[in-house]
Design a protein around this nucleic acid. Structure first.
Lengths: 232, 232
DNA sequence: ATTACTTATGGAACGCCGATCCATATGGAT
DNA sequence: ATCCATATGGATCGGCGTTCCATAAGTAAT
């Protein structure tokens, strides 16, 4: 299975396939029809080829979707300004950029995985690590803290965003929340003291606020854990 | 599609199916053969019935897997002592219990979803909320903070644990980490200043420590954000 | 040009899956 | 004994990921 090699920049036919072209078309298809809408047959048809040809450039569907998700992660970097801020502010901007990118491509949320092997996942973790290294934190904690922040960003984004892509397109987010709130109201307050008095918060909440709430708690904890240096 | 109703506790035949029996068998199959190993055909065979019969009790595969994951979440509650501790300690114990339960059933990690609708997801969020309400936090922030913590627990657990279930069973975790570390070492230090000097940390890290590192940052931030009450 | 070889393509076929259909069984109520 | 809602399970459908392989296209040497 000899993935596409460096390939001489010249030559090849005009309509040549490539891993990049395939992944790009996959992203478009995923955006348009969701995860279940991506099939090798349909993808091949859009590229005017057969399903078999795709396997020359891509090992299998898992790899294809992983590459597509990594490309979405790459979009996030375009939005965030090149570093050069305080660590806290830089981490916050980075996190929000990732959240927003995944928000625009909900199918990708559940496919950005932790152990960084793909190009943009590597970039993300490196940027986080570089920012963390600027805090007063002892060096031996940099790795654990950086990965923790990386896990928060991708993991919590996935929790918030992924369910939306599973939502029946006929049911709106509002309708779903209202319906869920109603179910919470019917619970026994003796068993669920908290939920039964929190239904209006559920109905009115904003997804992005929820993400930043936890993020700020985390970064806050980072400040007080680190040596109190001038909060850049 | 008339799910199983209350059903009179008496009667029925001895070998009667039920949603609980089906979900239980699904969990066993998922534990044994992973997510792709669960099929309606195989599940039906194990229960001495046909695939069609299962659909009387369960709407489709998505629902079945969701119910199975929720059952795993239920296991977590068995391990954690009934509340009655300080908020911080209680939240920590709860979080770790969930992590450990998912650790034992890796396939479930990517299926515990945020908007709580299933039984045990509801229980989890309610417990978190009850503990959060004991802090000095103003009431209007209880919902956002509770859901943030809930998102952290399930989302970050998923990030850490889920990749493991995708790992080729012939490749050990150690081998995978060593291999990934090698790839990091080959990166250009100019582009990846952090990763290239962090490879040994990657190789030696402990997954559970990573989970608790972020968790403690979060809870730490919670303490300093809340009115400074006696840290229970 | 011709040849020989690697790289790449694309359509057909394989095996399996989720889901549906429907003829049949079961057991409580009348 | 009869009836009917509840429940079962085997056959079947359409579609999927993947593999196979005959063939095309491009490259390099003669």
């Amino acid at each position: 299975m000899p993935r596409t090699r460096g390939r001489a920049p010249t030559g090849g036919r005009a309509d040549a396939l490539s891993r990049e072209i395939i992944v790009g078309a996959a992203v478009a298809l995923l955006d348009e029809r969701g995860e279940r809408g991506l099939t090798f047959r349909l993808l091949a048809k859009q590229l005017n080829t057969g399903p078999g040809a795709l396997y020359w450039h891509v090992a299998n569907k898992d790899e294809l979707v992983a590459l597509a998700a990594d490309q979405v992660l790459g979009h996030a970097f375009a939005a965030v300004p090149r570093l050069e801020e305080g660590a806290g502010a830089g981490l916050r901007a980075l996190a929000i950029a990732v959240f927003d990118a995944l928000d625009r491509h909900p199918w990708a949320a559940s496919h950005v995985t932790a152990p960084a092997t793909l190009a943009n996942a590597l970039r993300l973790l490196d940027r986080i690590g570089t920012l963390v290294a600027r805090t007063g934190l002892p060096a031996e904690r940099h790795f654990a803290v950086s990965t923790a922040i990386s896990y928060y960003i991708t993991g919590v984004s996935a929790q918030i965003i992924a369910p939306r892509s599973a939502l029946d397109s006929t049911t709106s987010r509002d309708a779903f929340l209202t319906q869920t709130a109603e179910r919470w109201e019917e619970l026994d307050p003796a068993d669920y003291p908290f939920l039964t008095r929190t239904t209006t918060d559920l109905r009115d909440h904003d997804d992005r606020d929820q993400f930043t709430t936890g993020l700020d708690l985390l970064l806050n904890g980072l400040n007080t854990t680190a040596d109190p240096r001038p909060p850049a």
